[in-house]
Amino acid sequence: MEHRGLDTDGCFEREGSLGQVPGAFAGVVAAARGRIRDAYGRRLHSAYLYGSVPRGTALPGRSDLDLLLALHHEPAGEDRDAAEVLARGLDEDFPEVDGVGILLYGKDTLLSEAERFDLGWFLACLCTPLLGADLAEHLPRYRPDSLLARETNGDLADVLPRWRRRMREASTPDEYRRLCRLFSHHLVRTGFTLVMPRWGGWTSDLTESAEVFGGYYPQRADQMRAAAAAALHPVADPAVLRAYVEDLGPWLADEYTARHGTKTPRVAAAGRT
């Protein structure tokens, strides 16, 4: 049987590790560790890497650096300002990375019952410890079931109006490319988690995610393959974004709700976008 990111008990194996960080990114990861510690001091509970860098698939000059910071308290204005300065500084000082993203949460939110199958799962399964005590030790083990699918990506219908607004506000090629990467990545991940319980496994590879999805929805397979390609090589084409919010996105939101239900509402948190 295929491995599919699960252990012998059918639970998610944590993906990524510091040992998998490509050599070209060792400097920026080391700098991130030091600068996070300096910026937050005792306010910081722990810090994590996620994405292509700890998975070992990052490409110099093309991949971004993704960080999650857990604070002892809920983030305040000064914490968000520090994250913005930190992200900008790392991006400017290290040409190996094409952008730096920082998610910021209080540890109580990450460990809350409301986030058990969303942020909790994300931290425990997709994040690599960088600093501090690992919060994953306080979280359960996870399986690729419908509950997880619902609580991770069962809110696409709520997201689409925000995407339409951001599209209307965009006007430059760089803005369109950023939205293309964001929308494409989100749609491919949502398409994959739609079929994840049936497939019975996990992958963070966008190309593989699109192929898995296409096996269950062949009529939408080409669209999802194109979205996976656009997530890796975003284009400054408003027509691509319109197709997402007018066709693929609404269809996917309806199909997701029909199969898994709607994500449980929660209070907006500082790290959400």
Rank of each mutant, 00 (worst) to 15 (best):
P173C: 09
P129D: 14
E211T: 15
M167S: 01
W163T: 04
L187W: 00
Q219M: 12
Y216P: 04
R177P: 13
W121Y: 09
Y217L: 07
Y142V: 02
Q219K: 11
L135H: 11
A230Q: 06
G120Q: 08
A149L: 02
R143Q: 05
D98F: 09
E113T: 03
R225I: 11
G215Y: 01
T190H: 00
L182N: 12
L148T: 00
C127S: 01
F183S: 04
V159T: 06
G154N: 01
E115C: 10
R220Y: 11
A124W: 03
A227T: 10
D222K: 15
L160T: 05
W163F: 13
L160W: 02
G200K: 02
R141M: 09
Y216M: 02
G201R: 04
M196C: 04
M196P: 05
L119M: 13
L187E: 03
R143G: 00
R220V: 10
D174Q: 14
A231Q: 10
R178T: 14
S112V: 02
A136M: 12
R225V: 03
M196H: 04
S146T: 06
T190V: 07
A114G: 07
V212L: 07
V188T: 10
L148C: 06
E169T: 11
E208V: 13
L182S: 14
A231V: 08
V235Q: 14
R178I: 09
G200I: 05
A124L: 05
L110D: 14
T203W: 08
L123M: 12
L160I: 15
C180M: 09
E115W: 08
G191Q: 07
R141H: 04
G201S: 00
M167T: 03
G101I: 11
D222S: 12
D174H: 07
L148K: 07
G99H: 09
D158L: 11
V100S: 13
R150M: 11
W121F: 15
V100T: 09
H233D: 15
R168K: 14
M196W: 07
A136Y: 06
L194A: 12
G214D: 12
E115F: 05
V100Q: 09
D93L: 12
L119Y: 13
V195M: 05
R166F: 12
M224I: 13
V159Y: 12
A221T: 02
V212Y: 08
E151Y: 08
L131H: 08
V100N: 14
R150C: 01
P161C: 01
G132V: 07
A136R: 15
R225Q: 02
K107W: 12
E96A: 15
R143S: 08
P161W: 00
P129V: 06
P140E: 03
E115G: 06
A124T: 02
Q223H: 13
L111I: 01
L156D: 03
R165V: 14
R164L: 08
E137G: 14
V159L: 11
L131V: 15
M196L: 04
V235P: 06
L139Q: 06
S209W: 10
H186R: 14
P161M: 02
Q223R: 14
T109L: 09
L206C: 04
A226S: 13
H185D: 14
L139S: 13
L130F: 02
R168P: 10
L119N: 04
S112G: 06
D205R: 08
F192T: 10
M167W: 03
R150E: 00
